[in-house]
Amino acid sequence: MDDKSMTKGELINELAKIHQRIAKLQEKEHFETIFDSIYVGIVVVDAETHAIAHANPPAIKMIGAPKEQIVGKVCHKFICPAEEGKCPITDLGQTIDNSERILIKANGGSVPILKTVTSTMIKGRKYLIESFMDITERKKREEELRESEEKYRDLFENANDLIQSVDASGKFVYVNRKWLNALGYSEKEAKKMKFTDIIHKDHIEYCMGIFKGLQRGETLDDVET
């Protein structure tokens, strides 16, 4: 399954539902059939040897190798970037619950995933049940947003005009370099200020009226103060 139409919160909810289902079915005799019916990637790892005991179809597709080349392999440096003896779960005692991790593909590539790992007993032996979703599309959108923000921030920072942005209370959330240089404040000082702090006291009431109008959705072209 991919994440093209789901937010991170929705992905987390889906993983939670799946693990509830796994918890109810963990003592079933035919666990492989059960895991194969789940639409997210599932890999079952022997907690002692770290050998992969089972991988369901979505996991096999993400890893990019036939099942017979996956089952039996030790997960270290195969599908998990962790070194032998440094397993986040069994060696380092970490909890992986809806964590962003990396899945290593058979061709050496990598896939960003949202991953949850739980331990369970199957037929009297302890296993790690790893479930994960491909979040490549979400990470791509995040990177595009970051690049867009950097582009506009660079544009604002190098503008010849004084540019400022305030929140609903009137507190500055952003001012550009030209603004700081012209008014003589540091960036640290500006973050503690409201726009009324730089307006003459005789004009504050007038400017507050304009500010409230903008909050109501009114538009203004030019304002003198």
Rank of each mutant, 00 (worst) to 15 (best):
T95S: 11
R138Y: 15
E137D: 11
E144S: 02
N107Y: 05
V166N: 00
A106W: 11
P88Q: 02
K105T: 11
R101Q: 13
E157M: 07
G85Y: 05
P66M: 05
P88T: 06
A82H: 15
R141D: 12
M62E: 10
A168S: 05
L145N: 04
N98Y: 12
V117C: 06
I63N: 06
M133N: 10
K67G: 06
S110I: 09
E143D: 04
R153D: 04
G85V: 02
N160L: 14
Y152S: 01
S131P: 00
K115C: 15
I70W: 02
Y127T: 04
E147A: 11
T120I: 14
V117A: 03
T90Q: 07
E144A: 11
I70H: 01
I129Y: 05
E157I: 06
R101W: 05
G124I: 07
R138E: 12
M121S: 11
D167M: 04
R125Q: 15
E147C: 00
Q94M: 14
E83R: 10
A59W: 12
Q94H: 12
I70V: 03
L128S: 01
F78W: 03
P81Y: 07
T116F: 08
R125T: 13
R138N: 13
D167I: 02
K140I: 03
R153C: 05
R101E: 15
R125V: 14
V74T: 13
T118L: 11
I102F: 02
I89Y: 00
